[in-house]
Simulated assay, not measured.
Amino acid sequence: MRLELRQGLVLVLSVLLGLAAVFAVTQTLLSREARSQQEARLEFQLDNLRADIEANLQLGFPIDEITPAQDLIEEAKRNDSTLLALDIFTPEGTSLYSTDRGVIGEPVPEAWLAAAEGAGAEERWTYSSRGETLLGLPIRNDLGETVAQIVSVTSSQELEARESGLKQALILHGLWIVPLALLLAAALAVVLARREGGRFHRAAACLRGENSGGDTATQLEAGAVAAHRNGTRVVERLDDAGRRLEEVENGL
């Protein structure tokens, strides 16, 4: 295989590997960013709801007698199509308010309580199960005591659909970016191959004594010229030594 062709293939393969690495990293970063933005938006929403409920607690209302709480979570769900449910439950695990009114007064899953208890000082807690993702925050009274937990329930499939949309957009962009990059790489490979091939051809000519190099000779050409001159001197010395040996033989 010619040197120019090998150089071109190496360059094109390098571009392909580079593009594959860039697309893989970009896809991972986009997925993380989409998930992070979703969680940040939900946490901001929950924090606003919590602030409204805690404001009622400071007025002296017990947590199970805050009438606006039910209206607040139902309005929040109506305004956000990604929400499957919003719930407020006691530290013991009894549902106080819920967008699904059928579960009010019923115990919440034990896994929810375990996730809330495991949050510790971080307050914010998450839990995923059966295609649902939960994000919860504690509700505290004016003494700093946790009197309830407010939790949002979203579909994991919703987030996966968004991530899939980002991946599809990335692939669509790749459909024109990759051919363009390969075309540019091929053009660059041709230019570099011709330039490098020309250098080697000129160096080979210098080795054969067909080119003296000149003032603009590259280091490779200068080395080839020097090698040719040294080789010529060696041959001349060998010829001279041969002639002397013949003279010695003739004298004998």
Rank of each mutant, 00 (worst) to 15 (best):
L9A: 11
V12Y: 01
L16N: 05
L16H: 05
G18F: 05
A20R: 00
Q27H: 05
L29K: 07
R32H: 12
S36D: 12
F44S: 08
L46C: 01
L46H: 03
R50V: 04
D52P: 00
L57D: 01
L57K: 04
G60C: 04
P62Y: 08
E65V: 13
I66Y: 00
I66C: 05
P68W: 12
K77L: 10
L83W: 00
P91C: 07
E92H: 07
L96Y: 11
Y97W: 00
D100I: 01
G102S: 12
P107Y: 00
W112E: 10
L113C: 02
A116I: 10
A119G: 14
S128C: 07
S129W: 10
G131Y: 06
R140P: 13
Q149F: 14
S152D: 11
S155W: 00
L159S: 15
E163K: 15
E163I: 12
G165P: 04
L166P: 02
L172C: 01
H173I: 04
H173M: 14
G174I: 06
G174K: 00
L175K: 05
P179A: 08
L180N: 08
L184Q: 11
A203H: 09
L207Q: 03
R208F: 07
G209D: 14
A217W: 03
A217V: 06
Q219R: 15
A222E: 14
G223H: 03
A226G: 12
G231T: 11
R233W: 04
V234A: 07
V235D: 04
R237N: 14
R243N: 08
R244P: 09
R244W: 10
L245K: 02
L245E: 09
E247C: 03
